[in-house]
Design a protein around this nucleic acid. Structure first.
Length: 791
DNA sequence: AGCTGTGGCAGGGAGG
DNA sequence: CCTCCCTGCCAC
């Protein structure tokens, strides 16, 4: 049976499994020797927090009390697979709710715990919960947003402070209905009761909100508790279950309070926006208003009210605030429509419900596919392998400067293709589910892409696109799963084989392009930017050229043109700018564009790069002179020179690691502590530097951005002029030293002449393939650089 | 109660 | 000055 389609017919489908009431059921893996010998390590067994759960079901169990740190009190194991299977079936019949959880090993116990919602790892839930065979448009989605009153003098709203309260509850759905519960005509307890009534009557499948986990739901629950109201919005009449959770987005993670409403699913567009941004990296903030504008969902006549002015508007212009709140829920609906569809379609393939899938990382998704099949075939599963990958993608730069024209070629789905062609899979995965599902997902994605071409309406297109992108997300995670040190089926050596093969393929392509008289400028993992040979003129020529190069590739690996550009400014590895044929400039890399770079610096770099790409040396000079003057004259505002950084640690863990000398004090944390901000890891803080000389200690001379006033500007001019110098130095590789000094000097505008100044193109010596620890190499001061003719 | 990976650049603190 | 180490941010 196709593991991806498991449970897609009614015979195979198993209804939701979980604990009942406050009785919790957990799944454990037990060391093989206790039950049955096998070539693998673990069998699944149950752990229950209350053994009477199983006794109630008449299951014969072996119960042992644990002591010490383990917070579960009882263990139960089964003497045979059939007994366990019977127990699962019984539970299924008797327990209608859902669960959630995770995996953890206990070093001192022969158990591997699946703290995850016991059985959702193993078994499919009801068709309605997994939305098998349904379309996104069939869901009933309700959007919710609350506005709160903040007592004077406070910076943040707080559900526990006297005077703070809910003033508006804005609601809408995807069937054209919208409504405001208005605190002018109702008491707050009446508002809350009305909300519970409306949710139960409307009976939506999904409840959506922007930052609903961390703000709206906790606030609502706190207020309900104060009024003694049961927030019973579950389909079974129960109130939400709350637990702390965290979601990781590439290098950072955010904490949030997950809520589960029985029978419904919660979608937090704040999390979805961040998840989207880990791939695109183009959002400046994750706020609703910014995100709605970014995606083009903001109406022209949309009302904007600064968060700190909400209470004022409530007192003076409540009607405007009502419109504002309705605009919020509408934007939430549109955002969610755009960002949650792929999770919806993924749900149909995974043994998790929609709300869980939207919160889950990709490794957990892959593992659930594997686990489901292993349990179905009643096969034991391995323990995670310790260790780490040793290799990654190949990245290199061959030229700096302005080059043209540019073709960008990508090896399509490099790592997945390698895994399929070279048959790379976890070594401890005898059932072959890894390769089978990867192959099947790839096949389904190609089929979806083909049918997209035949789609007639825009709605159909976007639906198929969501489907194929949900395949893509999973497919691209298979490689990451191999190297994940907590994955049950991980295989570090296999992960290394994948990346090494990828590196080889890239090097082959680089050689082939060079031998065909193309000029490779920059490469990274699976893509190459190069200048085609002079004989290649038209777009068709380029296509033929790429086709010819692609002939050297192994079977199953395909090359495609990912983009064509007028010019490229190549700066450093993973740092470059592109000038498209649409005259748009795209800047890549943390040293040229980064959210932690001050706004004035980002603008300076952007405009400077624009000048370089257009060979406008005069413009570059005046850009520098003007900015230098503005900084000196205090003509910038706090928004221009503020630095915004993410606080990745909690205050406790920051202070602990500073105390133990593990890390140094940092301005961002110090400023947050000094201002008594209450932050969660993942929150961002904006600050600026004060003091009167450039050699300040940053963490001792910083203030929150709010502390700055135009009347008494106390930003450290010397520091920011030094920053400007740091930004200009990024242009150093593009000019002769004397030209560089001329351009970035305060010489009078009319005295400056760009004559004779050219943008340099330099060849950068390629990194050694095998870094041999050889004396000669170490003594060499710098990579060899050849100066070449400018363009 | 949860978490996919490596490679690369920049900036700051601390100590030589 | 310089180097080391760390964190943050980004490309893929």
């Amino acid at each position: 049976m196709n593991p991806l389609l498991y449970g897609s017919n009614n015979e195979e489908r198993i209804v939701a499994v979980s604990q009942y009431g406050d009785r919790t059921m957990r799944v454990f893996f037990r060391e093989e020797d206790t039950i049955r010998s096998t070539d693998h390590n673990f069998f699944p067994f149950f752990l229950v927090s209350d053994s009477s759960v199983l006794r109630d079901f008449g299951v014969k169990t072996w119960v042992k009390e644990l002591d010490g740190e383990n917070y579960f009190r009882y263990l139960c194991a089964f003497s045979s697979w059939n007994e366990m299977w019977d127990a699962i079936r019984l539970m299924i019949e008797r327990t209608p709710q859902e669960n959630s959880g995770k995996i953890e090993t206990y070093a001192d116990l022969p158990f591997l715990q699946l703290r995850t919602d016991a059985v959702s790892q193993f078994l499919l839930q009801s068709g309605r919960t997994l939305f098998k065979g349904m379309e996104f448009s069939e869901l009933h989605r309700l959007q919710l947003d609350i506005e709160t009153y903040t007592s004077p003098g406070s910076r943040f709203s707080n559900a526990n402070r006297p005077g703070d309260r809910i003033i508006i509850i804005a609601l809408s759905d995807n069937r054209g209905w919208s409504y405001c519960i208005d605190g002018k005509s109702k008491r707050e307890d009446e508002m809350l009761r009305e909300l519970v009534r409306i949710i139960c009557e409307k009976d939506p499948d999904i409840i959506e909100g922007h930052n609903i986990y961390n703000f709206d739901l906790p606030y609502l629950l706190t207020r309900c508790e104060m009024f003694g109201i049961d927030f019973a919005v579950g389909r079974d009449g129960t109130s939400p279950r709350v637990f702390d959770s965290r979601m990781s987005f590439a290098e950072r993670y955010v904490k949030y309070s997950a809520h589960e409403i029985p029978g419904r699913h919660i979608i937090d567009t704040w999390l979805l926006v961040q998840s989207y941004d880990t791939q695109k990296r183009s959002l400046e903030s994750y706020g609703l208003k910014y995100a709605a504008k970014y995606f083009g969902f903001a109406k022209e006549d949309r009302i904007y009210i600064q968060p700190e002015r909400i209470s004022w508007y409530w007192d003076h212009e409540p009607d405007l605030l009502l419109r504002y709140a309705l605009d919020d829920v509408e934007e939430t609906r549109l955002l969610s429509e755009h960002l949650s569809q792929s999770s919806f379609y993924l749900t149909q393939m995974l043994p998790y419900n929609y709300g869980a899938v939207a919160r889950m990382g990709s490794a957990a998704k892959i593992e659930s596919l594997l686990m489901r099949e292993y349990v179905r075939q009643r096969h034991s599963v391995p323990k995670p392998e310790r260790g780490a990958q040793t290799s990654g993608g190949y990245a290199d730069i061959f030229y700096t400067g302005v080059l043209q024209p540019i073709v960008d070629v990508d090896v399509e789905s490099l790592y997945p293709s390698i895994m399929l062609e070279e048959k790379i899979a976890p070594s401890r995965e005898p059932l072959g589910v890894f390769s089978a599902t990867l192959g099947e997902l790839t096949r389904m994605r190609l089929a979806a892409k083909r049918s997209m071409k035949a789609a007639t309406s825009e709605g159909e297109r976007s639906q198929i696109d969501a489907l194929q992108s949900s395949f893509k997300i999973l497919i691209n995670s298979y490689y990451g799963y191999l190297g994940y040190n907590r994955a049950l089926f991980n295989d570090m050596a296999a992960a290394d084989r994948v990346t090494r093969t990828g590196q080889q393929i890239l090097r082959q392509l680089i050689t082939a392009i060079g031998e065909s008289a193309g000029t490779v400028v920059e490469v990274d993992t699976d893509g190459i930017y190069f200048v085609p040979p002079p004989s290649v003129q038209s777009e068709e020529d380029e296509e033929r050229f790429v086709e010819r190069i692609a002939k050297i590739l192994p079977k199953g690996i395909t090359l495609a043109i990912a983009g064509r550009f007028q010019k490229m400014l190549s700066y450093k590895t993973k740092n470059y700018a592109l000038l498209g044929y649409d005259n748009r400039i795209r800047i890549k890399g943390s040293s040229l564009t980064s959210r932690s770079i001050e706004k004035f610096g980002r603008n300076f770099l952007l405009q400077g790069i624009e000048c370089l790409l257009n060979n406008n040396i005069d413009g570059l000079h005046s850009l520098y002179v003007n900015l230098h003057r503005d900084i000196s004259d205090h003509a910038l505002t706090a928004a221009d020179f503020a630095r915004t950084e993410t606080l990745k640690e909690s205050i406790e863990s920051y202070l602990t690691s500073v105390k133990s000398g593990e890390r140094n004090r940092t301005a961002s944390y110090e400023v947050a502590i000094a201002a008594e901000l209450e932050w969660k890891p993942g929150d961002r803080v904006s600050y600026y530097f004060t003091g009167s000389d450039a050699g300040i200690k940053a963490f001792e001379n910083c203030k929150l951005i709010d502390a700055w006033t135009a009347d008494s500007p106390d930003e450290n001019v010397h520091y920011y002029l030094r920053r400007l110098d740091e930004f200009t130095r990024k242009f150093e590789p593009f000019f002769q030293p004397s030209d560089f000094r001329k351009i970035f000097s305060l010489e009078d505008l009319f005295g400056f002449s760009a004559e004779g100044i050219h943008v340099l193109r330099q060849h950068v010596a390629q990194k050694e393939l095998n870094e041999e620890e050889d004396e000669a190499d170490l003594s060499r001061p710098d990579p060899k650089i050849w100066l070449e003719e400018n363009l």
